[in-house]
Nucleic acid binder design. Structure first.
Length: 204
DNA sequence: CCGTCGATCTCCT
DNA sequence: GGAGATCGACGGG
């Protein structure tokens, strides 16, 4: 199906975009090789008011500047010094909202994914988890700022999932964000085996 | 099944 | 110096 257009990324509700991205196809074409996967898990990061966001309180650094760009570009950052995490920038200029893609169900280029990851067989570790899926698709921090309307990394449309197939929870690994860690900003496809094993915070 | 630990870049104190 | 939007290896139950 067709590439998602600018209007999709410029929507002003990052939570809505996060849900809407479930089921869509994340594609890369690098050195002429196409690899892709169906998005099955996402998290919303709501900018300046969200303690879990890198842009909380209008923080601007070299790394995070791209989140302030208009929607429709990639924000890829290095996590723990090792893992490249892919985000979709949303909303308009100077509104630093983003959606983290946390897991894919692999669709095209499985052999290439195995080459990139050094794995010998396809199992859920190939693309379940934000650091794993970028390795499989060849996404690195070098792609930060890349337009998602271009020909390197983009997202293709697919029919919206019915609400009953979407599960909602709290985000993974953001306990430091205090009360914002309890925001229901993590979305995944129910019963899909490619969803990451991460667990969100549960209020006691 | 679960817990711990190392890897090692960016940002903050 | 320490923590972090993670992962895989290892050890114990």
């Amino acid at each position: 199906m067709a590439k998602l257009e600018l209007a999709f990324y410029e929507q002003d509700d990052v939570v809505k975009v996060s849900r809407a991205l479930l089921g869509k196809l994340l594609v890369t074409e690098i050195d002429g090789v196409r690899t892709s996967g169906r998005i099955v898990e996402t998290e919303a990061y709501a900018g300046v008011t969200d303690r879990a966001s890198h842009a909380y309180n209008n923080r601007r650094t070299n790394r995070t500047e791209i989140i302030y760009a208009p929607g429709g570009v990639a924000y890829v950052y290095l996590c723990y010094g090792i893992h490249h995490l892919f985000n979709v920038v949303t909303h308009g200029r100077d509104i630093p909202h983003a959606v983290l893609v946390r897991a894919l169900e692999p669709v095209e280029g499985l052999e290439q994914m195995l080459l990139r990851t050094g794995k010998t067989k396809v199992d859920y570790t190939l693309t379940a988890g934000p650091g794993s899926l970028t390795k499989a698709l060849g996404i690195t921090t070098g792609h930060t700022g890349e337009s998602l309307l271009g020909n390197t990394v983009w997202i293709e449309d697919a029919p919206a999932l019915p609400a009953r197939q979407i599960a909602v929870g709290t985000r993974v690994g953001v306990a430091y964000a205090m009360e914002d860690a309890y925001r229901p900003y993590r979305f995944w496809v129910k019963d899909n085996k490619w969803v990451s094993r991460g667990k969100g915070l549960v209020r006691k």
